[in-house]
């Protein structure tokens, strides 16, 4: 019993040591966020606390927003030179503190950052879920396409070959256009009403074509002796594939699938053209409505964090699957 707790302690310490930077960042974030979340002021509180000038603004029905983490901002029309300059945001209050117009760059950025974060995270969630679901569906389909391509039954292998040829040979953007804009015109009954579903279909079909090639290569890299041993022991083709060959391809498949995953994550920004509210689309919307270029930096950092997390996950998976080597 004592030994077990000691071992647990040990591994906990190791974990802390290995991830200390991450843990410190997390702790700071939590320390900052807790008071912010606990002291969300109500809209009327904030309105009561701001200066006379802005109460007059409010009275004139200038546009006000009040978001879920308690930030009230007003948009004032300014010099109308270009789209980015049309509006200037004035932060009136955050976290119980009424703030009047602020020209402190850091405060502005911080307040902007906090106010953008919910919608950016919504976008990031769409990007992540689109990537995970379409790569997962793509990988499952690609196993069958790869096996079909290697099949001795000519028509089947021809169909699978044609599939890979088509989806690798045409731009993903074009496939997306076709699915969302083209298909409803050709066959009104096949209209896909949900943007996410349309994007998911296009991305998973595309991803299946790429993964099929990876899987075929991985299966062909398995030693012939494995097939012979399986045959001598009486395994059918299906059993050989399921129990012996495909499990051995997992480790070899992880690097190319990680690669595919990261490609799809970034290609997901193409869904902007069918107005799916993914991270890139939301970033651009924030830019056009506020004129703040710094939103690009925030958004790119979010992309980097997602990529880093998934790279880590794939590295761990690769280690897990190589225990026998």
């Amino acid at each position: 019993m004592n030994l077990v707790t000691k071992e647990k302690n040990n591994s906990f310490l190791k974990f802390v040591k290995r991830h200390r930077v991450l843990l410190i960042v997390l702790a700071v974030l939590i320390a900052v966020c807790i008071p912010l979340v606990l002291t969300v002021p109500s809209e009327t509180d904030l309105k009561g606390a701001v200066s006379q000038e802005f109460q007059q603004l409010e009275a004139r029905k200038e546009s006000y927003t009040f978001n879920s983490i308690g930030i009230m901002s007003a948009y004032k029309a300014q010099k109308q030179i270009s789209a980015a300059d049309v509006r200037q945001v004035t932060i009136l209050g955050v976290a119980g503190q009424a703030i009047d117009t602020t020209d402190n760059t850091f405060t502005t950025f911080f307040v902007n950052f906090v106010s953008w974060l919910p919608s950016l995270l919504d976008g990031a969630w769409i990007t992540i879920s689109l990537t995970i679901s379409s790569v997962a569906a793509g990988v499952i389909m690609s196993v069958f396409i790869a096996l079909g391509k290697m099949s001795k039954f000519k028509p089947l292998s021809m169909i699978c070959r044609a599939y890979v040829f088509f989806f690798r040979g045409t731009p993903l953007l074009m496939q997306l256009y076709f699915l969302w804009f083209g298909l409803p015109l050709l066959f009104p009954s096949l209209t896909i009403s949900d943007r996410f579903v349309a994007a998911f279909i296009a991305f998973s079909l595309n991803s299946a074509a790429y993964c099929a090639e990876n899987i075929r290569a991985a299966i062909e890299s398995i030693d012939k002796g494995q097939f012979e041993a399986a045959k001598a022991l009486g395994f059918t083709y299906g059993q050989t594939m399921r129990k012996i060959v495909i499990p051995q391809t997992y480790r070899r498949l992880i690097p190319p699938i990680a690669n595919e995953f990261i490609m799809v994550l970034k290609d997901a920004s193409l869904t902007s053209i069918i107005a799916l509210q993914d991270l890139s689309k939301i970033t651009n919307s924030i830019l056009t409505s506020t004129g703040e270029v710094s939103v690009y930096i925030v958004s790119m950092v979010i992309y980097l964090i997602i990529t880093a997390v998934f790279s880590k996950v794939f590295t761990v998976l690769e280690k897990k699957f190589s225990i026998y080597e």
């Binding site: 002796g225 494995q226 041993a229 001598a232 022991l233 009486g234 059993q239 012996i244 051995q248 026998y324």
Partner: peptide, 30 residues
């Protein structure tokens, strides 16, 4: 054909399974 067991020059064990699993896989599956 199952009345014949075969042993190969290059062993051809299944590398992703433990020794015990290697031996048990065929009787259970086949």
């Amino acid at each position: 054909l199952l009345e014949m067991g075969m042993v190969f020059q290059r062993f051809n064990l299944f590398p992703h399974l433990t020794v015990l699993e290697n031996i048990m896989l065929a009787p259970i599956t086949v």
